[in-house]
Design a protein around this nucleic acid. Sequence first.
DNA 1: AATTTAGGTGACAACGTTGTCTGCTAGTTC
DNA 2: GAACTAGCAGACAACGTTGTCACCTAAATT
Lengths: 361, 361
Amino acid sequence: MQYSVFVMTTLSSPISPAQGPSGHRPRPTMREVAALAGVSLKTVSRVINREPGVSAALVIRVERAAAQLDFRPNLTAANLRRSGQRTATIGLVLEDVSNPFFASILRGVEEVAVQRGVAVFAASLDEDQSQEQQIVEAFSSRRVDGLILAPTALEQGYLANEMRSGLVMAFVDRAPRGVEGDVVVTDNRAATQNAVQQLIAHGHRRIAFVGGVSALPTAEDRYDGFLDAMMAAQVKVPANYVVRDIRTVEQAEISITGLLQGAQPPTALFTAQNLISMGAVRALRALGLEKEVAQIGFDDFELADVLNPGVSVVAQDPRRIGRLAAEALFARLADAARQATTTVVPSELITRGSGEIPPPL
Amino acid sequence: MQYSVFVMTTLSSPISPAQGPSGHRPRPTMREVAALAGVSLKTVSRVINREPGVSAALVIRVERAAAQLDFRPNLTAANLRRSGQRTATIGLVLEDVSNPFFASILRGVEEVAVQRGVAVFAASLDEDQSQEQQIVEAFSSRRVDGLILAPTALEQGYLANEMRSGLVMAFVDRAPRGVEGDVVVTDNRAATQNAVQQLIAHGHRRIAFVGGVSALPTAEDRYDGFLDAMMAAQVKVPANYVVRDIRTVEQAEISITGLLQGAQPPTALFTAQNLISMGAVRALRALGLEKEVAQIGFDDFELADVLNPGVSVVAQDPRRIGRLAAEALFARLADAARQATTTVVPSELITRGSGEIPPPL
DNA sequence: AATTTAGGTGACAACGTTGTCTGCTAGTTC
DNA sequence: GAACTAGCAGACAACGTTGTCACCTAAATT
């Protein structure tokens, strides 16, 4: 898509020029509210924080003054002094928020956070694992109370010092390496084993595994689950039936197309991640093989059920994973002595047709 | 899906108990770094901020001390004092981050922000417009430098005071009502008119419009574009061909199913939003009508091209919209006197088959 | 009537940092 | 060798708020 952009300049806002062209009046502080209400700064603080011990008359006067000036308490200043030093802020660091799986995790985290009046910083890393530590440090400098991380870097040892300094961590989707903490993951290995077992039960022996970045524990676990199932059934896995380190839909489509056009093509595919499953869907349909070659994917995706055949998947519940991670984080924030937990969220094999295609005779 | 959860408790971290069960040592401050390095607090500040005028020897001593203590500057404290009072933080308030359209906007915003060392708060409103103001105030209290909002509430007049106090705003996807500011939107009306014109050109006269929450300007504009095209072609629009205020895929599926099963069903659908388009895809396929009834949708969606027939859409570029909004915001932050701009990002009609189905003879 | 008490209210220091200004030392210039 | 730099380092106040404590008033107790 090649877009151009039209920009039209509208008249400057009817609001902003009230204080001169560039100017806005600086935000009112408690001091100013106090002056207007004719009370001391501290009394304003008490009213704003709903502390007891202020007469009803003054409460009203202060509230009126605050409303009149549009006073908005400066939380960053308050947190500086407030005991516990909580900022009511957490961070969430993911691979890519525009991937629906991660977007749902964010949504789940938000849901829990907003209830507690906690704001959520979001950041995407892409493939750039080197950014992981930088972003964690940026959030740490902003004194987030806690951080939820989907580890991308090979190793999270760098977090040890942060955690010792009071940064509370939880991990989603992938267990960290080099540190411990609350973890919420899917039963990757067992679920994959089960799914591949289904393919074998339907008679497949030539089953290919197409997976994501092999350095990630999820990809590793799913691959291990695949091997578990294949070994249990004593099915050999030729090297060319294993494709790993696929990062994008396009890469998946290309390499699966190659796989299917090669000699001795597989009769079934296990695609170990949502982007890869979509690539497979494309490749199969482009070759007209979607009713010949079986497919089961890891991660559900939109419209998987309206395709023909429907795409069978191992469905995770990412929103729930996000919620659980946030809850673990807040539990730990409330009780630092709490033991670290690992929560394994079971996934569900949803059969829609593509996984039940039998091999050719 | 009905899930249960397994929780296993692991041994407490090998790291955290270093300072006793619950305890972590509090974060080191510049004061402590200064003590360790044997210099004054201010010298540490200079080194951390790379200010000139510190001898090389001291720079090294301070850096070593900072590293040894794992010192992380407290940005919130720094911003309190720092001139301009910038927090290097912006907020993004959307309807729902787990909607791929909004997720891509967030991604675009992040992309621009991270380059500038700015962190992004994200929040979803759902249908709850009343939350909009609350969340804006929560972010304002945290002194975000700027805020990007996809307006959901009927009216954004409440922002006037915030903006006067220096909160810089940009708006995405929808123009605000009651305030002005930088706006980045799609050419909703013209693009819709063009798409509906295509349907008419293919011979359709019985064209239904299925749209989202009608109070939103986007929905309004798209509806107007639909009417533009219909009126230009002098085609009458019976009341039952207009369905509005659809919020979810399920609602869309149900009401479109009803529409298609009613008397005098439409021969073509214009579905004015991605969730609605997906609902239509479901309804059409459930009824086996996907090759009989034409469909053009607003917003592209994953796999629209591999469906059979492929779904023709008016494609927006949400990531770009996000980037442009963030750029407008930062431009305004750099120059408060800058005029407010409205950027209209053209969309593109992508024909994939569903929009080119002719009406029955 | 003197004393205690409770209920308000405010002065002041502190949170961790940066901006300003002053002071010291060593090197340069006359 | 005195006067002047430049370069470096630190003391101190300030940012906007909260925690602590002292104070004041009026009511309640003796």
